[in-house]
Write a protein that binds this DNA or RNA. Structure first.
Lengths: 147, 147
DNA sequence: AGTTATCACTTTACCACGCAAGTGATACTT
DNA sequence: AAGTATCACTTGCGTGGTAAAGTGATAACT
């Protein structure tokens, strides 16, 4: 427990913060009948449609299996459409899905950023953003140390 | 999507980073036959034992239900003990659990902090730590905005 | 043409988690 | 003493995640 304390503590706090804020976001999004995960996926579809499932999975850091089920649920609720297209399926929003996401987006973005804006200065947010960018990129490339 | 962009982007990156690093941690901890969640709980037990389930749940940001199931599994695997004690159950590590956690702790702490130390300066880590402390505290107290 | 490979997606089985209803022991109230 | 409240924990059900095996359509090899 020597000198790794600071990194470890930071890691733990970040974990707690994300689960906590994720839960609050879920609670918040109930008023739009969405979960955070669904919101995330819908936003990506809106931005990148038409897009295939595997590309989508890659974008939101989920396995293909998870994406498959998630989209099945969203389709059942009539928020998205899947069209077989060559051998891939192309995903797009239905008008209902579009309405949902448009209704939810402004408040959700506002809510998300309030976590930061309510306690950090603009300065701090900026350096946090820079740090997170580095960290995220790094974690994508990171390999496990050998046994 | 106006001026909340920075907060939102930060939020998204942080989410991606935590799920990513959590996955890697899980993979890493496989060599000790543990998951990140279990490691987290065991550490807390070691530090605070004897402790009740609800206190434990509070510490790791999990509901009582989740904690109940998690501990049931850990008990089945012989890593912890639960003793009915008045009306509460007192949790403690078995010697097997103690061994496990002691074996895993140094490398896991090292691994966790490597996420930060490999890309940020000591300076940056320190301000990140400060920021996360504020954010975590705030998120615990935060209430949903009224409808 | 017939086998084999590959690719995109699905399905299954498992773990982790939340919420909310249920349980069982203790304490409080009258 | 009977009834109620409370507290700590458990359980049922749904979501969301992984890993790995399965499916079905297209391409590639001989």
């Amino acid at each position: 427990m020597r000198n790794h304390t600071l990194g470890t503590l930071t890691w733990i706090r970040m974990m707690r913060f994300t689960t906590q804020s994720n839960q609050l976001s879920n609670e918040f999004l109930k008023r739009f009948d969405l979960t955070t995960a669904q919101f995330d996926v819908l936003i990506q579809i809106k931005t990148y449609a038409p897009i295939t499932q595997s590309q989508l999975a890659e974008k939101v850091t989920v396995t293909q299996g998870g994406m498959s089920r998630m989209l099945a649920r969203l389709e059942k609720e009539g928020l998205i459409e899947r069209k077989q297209n060559w051998k891939t399926k192309t995903i797009s929003l239905t008008s209902k899905g579009e309405q949902m996401i448009d209704a939810a987006t402004p408040s959700q973005l506002h809510f998300q950023s309030s976590f930061f804006e309510e306690v950090l200065s603009a300065e701090e947010i900026k350096s946090l953003y820079i740090a997170m960018t580095k960290l995220e990129k790094h974690s994508r490339e990171k390999k496990l140390p050998p046994v």
